[in-house]
């Protein structure tokens, strides 16, 4: 009885598995296709890009050459990338330096009222940024920070800090208590416990958190466009600079967008390697 039953059940399961895989591939393709099309269009001539959709064409790097070419009076690609790079890198480093001690104080040796503190951090994200832009703009103007990289570094740090604290706190909570106690008994001070025991164990978490901070800061558009429209402009502003009212320049825009996504993809790839290495390290037992 049971023998005749198991056959079809296994078969059904297999079929269900195939259907689910097919669905997953389909959804994945749906998500990926616009990106794929954008990259493809970046290698087309304007005529090809604006005509009927073509999968096969003669590729050209002409659009990439054009968007990276300096034109007087316009934001150059080099400038935009360097502004973005410094704003993202410095703000991410600052976020990590501030979030690691905060996360420690909220998980491993929780301070009094740590729940309230944690809530305070996340509550700073409740206010829509558009509602805060006017005071931010006035403060920036009074401090002579408009059109500087510094204002973006400060704001990106503030913007990503709550998220980083929350993420790191949950990673820190996973560190087995005995490991920290063992390190204490082995004679480490607080700094030693953090640097030689806790951080190596939460390395995948650090990588994931830093990656998210990089992505959010790199893609940030609203603050950049409001506070830094002229100097200190970042890559997202440079990309929109290629939107023209004088006609469709789809290929050029695609090339610019492709260039803008590259650094994030590289950062993601680097972080992923780190995350997998961390996960493979194994747990306590």
């Amino acid at each position: 009885m049971s023998g005749s039953n198991t056959g079809p059940v296994v078969g059904e399961r297999k079929l269900g598995g195939y259907l689910l895989s097919a669905l997953a591939w389909f959804v994945g393709f749906l998500f990926f296709f616009p990106v794929f099309w954008m990259v493809l269009s970046g290698f087309k001539t304007e005529a090809d890009a604006n005509g009927p959709p073509k999968l096969f064409f003669e590729p050209t790097t002409e659009q990439f050459a054009e968007v990276t070419n300096d034109t007087t009076g316009l934001l150059s690609a080099g400038e935009a990338f360097s502004n973005s790079f410094w704003a993202v890198a410095i703000s991410t480093v600052l976020v990590m330096l501030l979030a690691i001690p905060a996360a420690y104080a909220l998980s491993i040796k929780p301070v009094d009222k740590w729940r309230d503190v944690l809530f305070f951090f996340i509550s700073t994200k409740f206010l829509p940024i558009v509602a805060a832009i006017l005071p931010l703009w006035i403060i920036a103007r009074e401090l002579n920070l408009l059109n500087t990289r510094l204002i973006l570094i400060i704001l990106y740090t503030a913007m990503n800090l709550p998220l980083a604290v929350w993420m790191l706190r949950s990673f820190f909570s996973e560190v087995p208590r005995e490991l920290i106690e063992a390190a204490q008994i082995d004679g480490t001070n607080l700094r030693g416990q953090i640097t030689s025991v806790i951080l190596p164990i939460v390395a995948p978490g650090l990588a994931a958190t830093a990656l998210l901070c990089v992505i959010f800061a790199w893609n940030e558009f609203f603050l950049a466009v409001q506070l830094n429209p002229i100097e200190g402009s970042t890559v997202p502003i440079w990309v929109t600079g290629n939107v023209s009212t004088r006609g469709n320049f789809l290929a050029k825009l695609s090339a610019a967008s492709t260039l803008a996504t590259l650094p994030v993809i590289i950062a993601g790839w680097l972080a992923q390697k780190r995350m997998i290495r961390g996960l493979a390290m194994g747990a306590i037992k």
């Binding site: 087995p176 005995e178 106690e181 063992a182 008994i185 194994g282 306590i284």
Partner: peptide, 10 residues
């Protein structure tokens, strides 16, 4: 100290 779960640094 020797811990029950050994607490070796992974």
């Amino acid at each position: 100290m020797v811990f029950q779960n050994y607490a070796l640094y992974p």
